[in-house]
Measured scan of single mutants.
Amino acid sequence: NITAAIYDEIQQEMKRAKVSQALFAKVAANKSQGWLCELLRWKENPSPENRTLWENLCTIRRFLNLPQHERDVIY
């Protein structure tokens, strides 16, 4: 289940792992930094009809659900 909290989790994970938006986007969703920036802007007004947005957030959720040491190896 995806909630608005995922946006904060993304920010916290980037700080914790000391990774850039570009690197996080690449490893978590195989996307660009610009894409992640755009995604983070949706926090203010996520559209329930935007299926692509929710699919991408689900992809990021799966990455964030990995154990921390696995995420660190991927970075």
Rank of each mutant, 00 (worst) to 15 (best):
I6F: 03
E38A: 11
Q11M: 14
I6N: 01
F63A: 00
I6S: 03
L40Q: 02
C58W: 13
A28N: 03
A4V: 14
K26Y: 08
Q11W: 06
E9N: 10
T59D: 06
R41E: 12
C58N: 11
E70G: 02
S32T: 14
R71S: 00
K15E: 13
Q12G: 10
R51S: 12
D72Q: 07
P48T: 11
Q12E: 12
E55P: 02
I74T: 11
E55Q: 10
E70S: 03
K43W: 10
L53S: 12
T59W: 07
L66I: 03
Y75F: 03
L39S: 09
S20G: 13
E9R: 12
R16D: 07
C37S: 13
A17L: 10
F24M: 08
A25I: 05
N65I: 14
K31T: 14
F24W: 03
H69M: 03
I6Q: 02
Q11G: 06
Y7G: 01
Y75N: 03
Q68V: 12
N65W: 10
F24S: 01
Y7E: 01
C58M: 04
N50R: 12
L64R: 00
I6E: 01
C37H: 13
N65L: 07
Q33C: 07
E38Q: 05
L36H: 00
S32P: 10
W35H: 04
L53W: 05
E55H: 12
V27A: 11
M14C: 03
A28V: 10
T59Q: 12
L40T: 10
Q68K: 08
K15W: 14
V73C: 13
Y7F: 09
L23F: 06
R62M: 06
W35T: 12
A17Q: 09
A22M: 10
T52P: 08
D8T: 15
A22Y: 15
M14G: 03
I10P: 00
P46G: 07
N1M: 15
L66R: 12
E49H: 01
T3G: 04
P67N: 15
Q12V: 04
L57R: 00
R61F: 05
E9Q: 14
A29C: 01
S32M: 09
N50L: 07
N30E: 14
I74Y: 00
E38G: 14
M14E: 06
P48Q: 04
E44P: 10
Q12R: 07
N45C: 02
R71T: 01
R71C: 11
E70F: 04
P46T: 03
Q33F: 02
N45W: 13
C37P: 02
P46A: 07
W54F: 03
I10S: 02
E49G: 09
Q33R: 09
N50C: 07
Q21V: 13
D8I: 15
R41P: 02
R41T: 11
V73Q: 06
Y75Q: 01
Q68G: 11
Y7V: 12
S32Y: 04
A22Q: 05
N1G: 01
I74P: 04
E44Q: 03
K15D: 03
R16A: 07
R62D: 12
Q21T: 09
G34M: 14
N30D: 03
P46Y: 15
K43P: 07
V19A: 12
K15S: 07
A4Q: 15
F63C: 02
V73P: 13
A22S: 11
L23G: 07
K31H: 15
V73S: 14
T3E: 11
K15I: 06
T3P: 07
E38D: 07
A29I: 08
E55A: 07
R16L: 08
I60N: 00
R51Y: 06
E13Q: 03
C37I: 12
S32F: 05
L64T: 01
N30S: 12
S20N: 02
R51Q: 11
S47I: 07
C37T: 13
N56A: 12
E9M: 13
F24L: 07
I74W: 08
L36Y: 03
F24K: 00
R16C: 03
L40C: 02
A4W: 15
S20F: 06
L66S: 14
G34P: 01
R61Y: 13
W35D: 15
W35R: 08
L36F: 11
N56V: 03
A17E: 03
W54T: 06
W54S: 08
N45T: 08
N1V: 09
A4K: 08
A17H: 07
W54V: 15
R71G: 00
L23A: 05
L64P: 00
S20I: 03
Q11C: 08
M14Q: 14
N50I: 05
I74L: 09
Q33W: 06
K18F: 03
N65F: 03
E38N: 07
A29S: 09
W54G: 13
P48W: 14
R41S: 12
D8E: 13
N56Y: 13
E9T: 05
L57I: 04
H69I: 15
C37Q: 13
N56Q: 09
A29D: 15
R61I: 08
E70Y: 05
R61Q: 05
Q21P: 05
E44G: 11
F24I: 04
P67K: 04
